Amino acid sequence: MTSPRALRPPFAKIPRRISRKLSTQTLRISLGLGVTFLSACKDGSETAAAAPKPPAQVVVYKVETRPFADTTTAVGTLRSNESVEISAAVTEQVEALHFEDGQTVKKGDLLATLTSHEEIAQMANAKAILAEEERELKRLSGLSETGSVAKVTVAERTTRGVLAKAGIDRIQAMLDDRNVRAPFDGVVGLRRISVGATVSPGTVITTLDQLDRMKLDFTVPEVFISQLGKGSAISVRAAAYPDRTFEATVENVDSRVDPVTRSITVRSIIDNKSHELLPGMLMSVNLQRNQREAITVPERALVPLGKSQAVFRLKEDSSVERIGVQIGARVPGFVEITEGLKVGDQVISDGVGGLSNGAAVKVSESFSGPAEMFNPSADAEAR
């Protein structure tokens, strides 16, 4: 069995006096190294602090005025000037269709014929009855002049003739119900049924739209009422034609303002003789008021400070100062400045990140314009 003495570490045999001496020397060496390290760090930091910081590279914008206006964008759904779903007035079988999809028709043109064999037979019978009544009335009228027939008999026969004519008119109305005609000039849509189908009131045969003039109803804030009188010209856009503008004329303004939204509905008319616009299209209207010349800066020059805004203005000594500004309306890429700047001031438009009051800067270039808006369709075409 190994004794406890044999398990002691080797340095345990060093005399206590020599051990204390070694510990004191080790402590002195450690303190010396620490002081040397701290001195080296201090010298390095003083050297770094002494090195001048290079001025930040920035882009500047010379403040100028631009035309501004209070704008609003309204949207509405396009509707044809006249629109109807063509349907039958009676329940009957379709005998013939007289139009093609998308055909232009005139008022009164025959669109569909329904089966009318029974009504045609009734019409022949009614005409025969009327002819008989007219012949009998003529004969009795001659006898009445000689006194051979009482006048009351002639009057009765006259009444029967009137009733026979009314019967013909009634059957003619039934025949007319079986001839479906266009109620106005327009363009028919797609055919919804086939020959031989049984239709009833409410069954859509096709649609008919008057496309030469289109209606666009949209709502705007009540502050724009004074600019939208009857006959006012406005410009509208369609999502289907993003690069085009269509001219419209205000036809009427609603007689009431919505008390909840404080908006009013405006009806405008668009000339559409080319039939490019179709019912159901989404249209947008841009309206402007209070047009003015205003001081502007690029939107990216603004530095948010809580609920307020500021910009960095370039000073003559190539340093910057941060000044608070009041902003107004915006247009793509620019913002109106109502207070804080004057025409001719130079503000930092690019490179504001990391700037502080009094920082030195170096102007690399002048502001050339805002970045173009992202167009996903153009990006897809490029790929």
Rank of each mutant, 00 (worst) to 15 (best):
1 M>I: 07
1 M>F: 11
11 F>Y: 10
16 R>V: 10
24 T>Q: 15
31 L>Y: 13
35 V>D: 07
40 A>K: 08
41 C>Y: 10
48 A>N: 08
54 P>L: 14
59 V>G: 08
60 V>E: 11
62 K>F: 04
62 K>P: 08
64 E>Q: 14
65 T>K: 15
68 F>A: 11
69 A>F: 07
70 D>I: 09
73 T>K: 14
75 V>P: 00
80 S>F: 06
83 S>N: 12
87 S>C: 03
88 A>R: 04
95 E>W: 04
96 A>G: 03
97 L>N: 01
98 H>M: 03
105 V>Y: 03
105 V>H: 02
106 K>M: 01
107 K>H: 06
108 G>E: 06
110 L>K: 08
111 L>C: 02
113 T>F: 02
114 L>S: 04
114 L>Y: 07
119 E>H: 05
122 Q>D: 10
125 N>M: 06
127 K>N: 07
127 K>V: 00
129 I>K: 12
133 E>Q: 12
143 L>K: 05
150 A>P: 00
152 V>I: 05
156 E>Q: 13
156 E>L: 11
158 T>E: 14
160 R>L: 10
161 G>R: 15
161 G>D: 02
166 A>K: 14
169 D>M: 09
170 R>F: 06
172 Q>D: 11
179 N>G: 09
184 F>D: 07
186 G>W: 11
186 G>S: 10
187 V>M: 14
188 V>I: 15
190 L>G: 05
195 V>A: 11
211 L>G: 08
215 K>M: 09
219 T>D: 12
220 V>L: 08
220 V>D: 02
221 P>C: 07
225 I>C: 00
226 S>Q: 03
228 L>P: 06
229 G>Q: 06
232 S>W: 02
243 D>W: 03
243 D>N: 09
248 A>S: 06
255 S>C: 00
262 R>M: 09
263 S>M: 13
268 S>K: 10
271 D>N: 15
274 S>T: 15
276 E>A: 11
281 M>E: 02
284 S>P: 02
285 V>I: 12
286 N>V: 11
290 N>G: 02
295 I>R: 06
296 T>C: 04
297 V>H: 03
298 P>K: 08
303 V>F: 07
307 K>C: 01
307 K>V: 05
311 V>E: 01
313 R>I: 12
320 V>Q: 11
323 I>Q: 04
325 V>K: 08
326 Q>N: 10
329 A>Y: 10
330 R>K: 15
335 V>T: 13
336 E>C: 06
338 T>H: 10
339 E>G: 08
340 G>E: 10
345 D>K: 14
346 Q>G: 04
346 Q>F: 01
352 V>H: 13
353 G>T: 13
355 L>V: 12
360 A>K: 15
362 K>G: 02
363 V>M: 09
364 S>I: 10
364 S>G: 08
366 S>C: 02
371 A>Q: 12
372 E>G: 05
373 M>G: 07
382 A>G: 00
